[in-house]
Amino acid sequence: MISKKEVKHIAKLARLSLNKREILKMQQELSKILDYIEKLRKVDVSGVKPAPYSIQVENIMRNDEVKTVDPTIKKKILEQAPETKDGFVKVKSIIDKPWS
């Protein structure tokens, strides 16, 4: 069974706020699902290679070039952002107490 402390830790890593009731519920549900997943321990996987993909995929690199964007598209992109300033997307302060 996964502990409440672990649930809180995972929620923090995943950047999800959970209230007390949600933590308890998550603990119960995750425990049940993880019990089911435990089944995998019964499989002998010695010498088996992992398959991150079902087919063989190759990494394809593109050139790192600056491309110009149609200004109407730029406008549309910026319109989706909650906060913008001078044609940039605005982000909340990263440090707790701004130095202003």
Binding site: V7, A14, L30, V43, P50
Partner: peptide, 26 residues
Amino acid sequence: IMLGTYALSAGYYEAYYKRALKVRTL
């Protein structure tokens, strides 16, 4: 998201994620 974060987190990656990828091969 919680389940995936757990399976990929330090200490569980080998036991969960890597094992699952091997079972996928089978």
